[in-house]
């Protein structure tokens, strides 16, 4: 009796640790309240903005910048120019005080992730950030854990796509899942060769 009870408790503890002590539980789904109710779904999916209109540093910098408030004002100086929801943006553009956006996707400080390297070599935003273009309020989709990074680093061909489709978050090789997988395999390997993409797995690739 005691043995069975002990076994059940042990199983429950192990199962609980497996299920909960992972970024898949602790980080995925993080959706903080942002100071301005900015909707990516409206701007990208409906209005058709490219990610890089606002995140314009992503192709040349290691981090993908939050746009300056003046970038918002390019349009919102005229569109919804008196809307109370945008009061903070207008104020920020006027005074230079940044909007206190809450960072969602954040890897540990000892990880040196480089955005430009990835987007210039065929890794789409969607691989790590999910379909932001469908989100009214952004939340974290992927765990961004070490194993998440390594899954892709061990097999980059499974994710590579043409450079002009990087910011097209709906894009697939084909709508048919089988054909899509086949095409991804075939083209992914070709792109890997063409661009000399390496399967970097040494520690110093990400940790310095």
């Amino acid at each position: 009796m005691i043995i069975i009870g002990g076994l059940m408790t042990a199983t429950a503890v192990v199962a609980g640790a497996w299920y909960y002590l992972t970024p898949k539980w602790s980080r995925v789904g993080y959706q903080p309240i942002q100071p301005v109710a900015f909707s990516h779904a409206t701007h990208v999916d409906q209005l058709g903005f490219d990610c890089r209109y606002c995140h314009n540093g992503v192709e040349k910098s290691w981090y993908s910048n939050i746009p300056a408030s003046s970038t918002c004002m390019n349009c919102h100086g005229q569109v919804l120019k008196d809307d109370p929801r945008l009061a903070l943006v207008r104020q920020s553009a006027e005074t230079g005080q940044p909007i206190p956006w809450v960072q969602i996707h954040r890897v540990p400080d000892f990880v040196y992730y480089n955005h430009s390297v990835h987007v210039n070599r065929g890794i789409s935003c969607v691989e790590c950030h999910g379909q932001i273009n469908k989100m009214d309020e952004v939340y974290q989709v992927q765990p961004l854990s070490m194993t998440f990074c390594l899954d892709c680093h061990r097999d980059p061909a499974a994710k590579l796509r043409p450079l002009d489709k990087i910011t097209d978050l709906n894009w697939k090789w084909s709508d048919n899942p089988t054909v899509n997988a086949e095409q991804q395999r075939k083209n992914g390997q070709k792109l890997m060769q063409d661009w000399h993409v390496q399967s970097l797995q040494n520690c110093s690739a990400c940790h310095r």
């Binding site: 898949k24 539980w25 903080p32």
Partner: peptide, 16 residues
Amino acid sequence: IVGVLGFRGSHSRQPS
């Protein structure tokens, strides 16, 4: 425990 900690992937306002 499940009631307090919830399920994987559920949306949360709290940072981890």
